[in-house]
Nucleic acid binder design. Sequence first.
DNA 1: GCACAAAACGAACGTTCGTGCTTTTTTATA
DNA 2: TATAAAAAAGCACGAACGTTCGTTTTGTGC
Lengths: 199, 199
Amino acid sequence: MSVTPVTEKGNQTREAILDRAVDLASVEGLEGLTIGRLAAELQMSKSGLFAHFGSKRDLQLATIAAAADRFRATVVEPALEQPQGAARLRALAERYLEQVDTYAGGCFWAATAAEYDDRPGPVRDAIVASLDAWLAALESQARAAGVENPQRLAFELYSLVMGANSRYRLSGDKRVFVFAREAIEELLPEAVRPANPGS
Amino acid sequence: MSVTPVTEKGNQTREAILDRAVDLASVEGLEGLTIGRLAAELQMSKSGLFAHFGSKRDLQLATIAAAADRFRATVVEPALEQPQGAARLRALAERYLEQVDTYAGGCFWAATAAEYDDRPGPVRDAIVASLDAWLAALESQARAAGVENPQRLAFELYSLVMGANSRYRLSGDKRVFVFAREAIEELLPEAVRPANPGS
DNA sequence: GCACAAAACGAACGTTCGTGCTTTTTTATA
DNA sequence: TATAAAAAAGCACGAACGTTCGTTTTGTGC
């Protein structure tokens, strides 16, 4: 069972662990995320790190929660500065694409979703909940943008940004980001395209 | 190092192993594919199974080759019956989508690509080669269909069918296939849409 | 039917995994 | 500064991993 930190130092250590855990899980997966390696990278003992969570499952769940926090902070919240609808949709997609190139392991969610899509249990449930929230956010803004089929547009945007993550990680070719941006632009309602007085 | 089977019985066993290995790896990944479990499911000994490959890495590489064979047989070759261009593109995407729902673990390539996109080595190289061939096939048909940007269309089709696989495995909602088919149809050159005299 | 090779087996290896128990060190407060 | 609690460490365990080894079973050509 999970152990809640009490002192300030305990809190700092826990957050340092989870920050590293998110990066590591983006590369090795949540199953390949091993307590021994995580402890070694943070230069602390296995048992000391372990005591912060009580079980590997709880470490995985805490890592998912930390990844969700990071995603909200780097992708969702900046996009909230844009007005509802197409502009915010564009910002959400753009922030996602930028984030793919920022973190060494690529998108945490693409890695863990593929890993757990056939493994029932609380870990899978937590991943599904986060991804459903992401889809719901896209759908909500698609509806605000007045498109005819918000669910379908949300699916298309999800596919394109995830596809860009996948192709970029495999090929290293940044042109996929151009392809993704062009494709996304054609999906968004034309009236709300960014100011481009010439056309 | 890998051991080539000599007798007919050796060949049958090897193929039975690889057939099961592809399914298992689609669920557990190529790293989670364990020799002990594979042997248990086939009701044979670990060492007997192991002798067919000589190392886990060679088992993984053989599994990738078997998955590529299966993909060619169930997706690519049936689509070759369609004339080049948009019709064959549609058939490729359609066969892929059907295959997602057929195999219990979903798409082998979606699972393993996400697993190995950050793990250098021969296993990753083999996966990348297969996926590049798939992209190249899509691009070639897109070019034959006369679209303005074949690379981008190939990327979009890749993203949509992979996205459908991902969303279906996570949500179980078959409407994603409808979304994917509609989106794909809008991407294909209109002139070659399937016969639909009414519209 | 014998002999030989291929295939399959069973036991054991060294390593790494998650986890539990006990002790030491560090932190925060009175 | 003394003390109690929290954090971290040390050590050991059982299980599972890939792999090796020597042996036994199976199948096939003379």
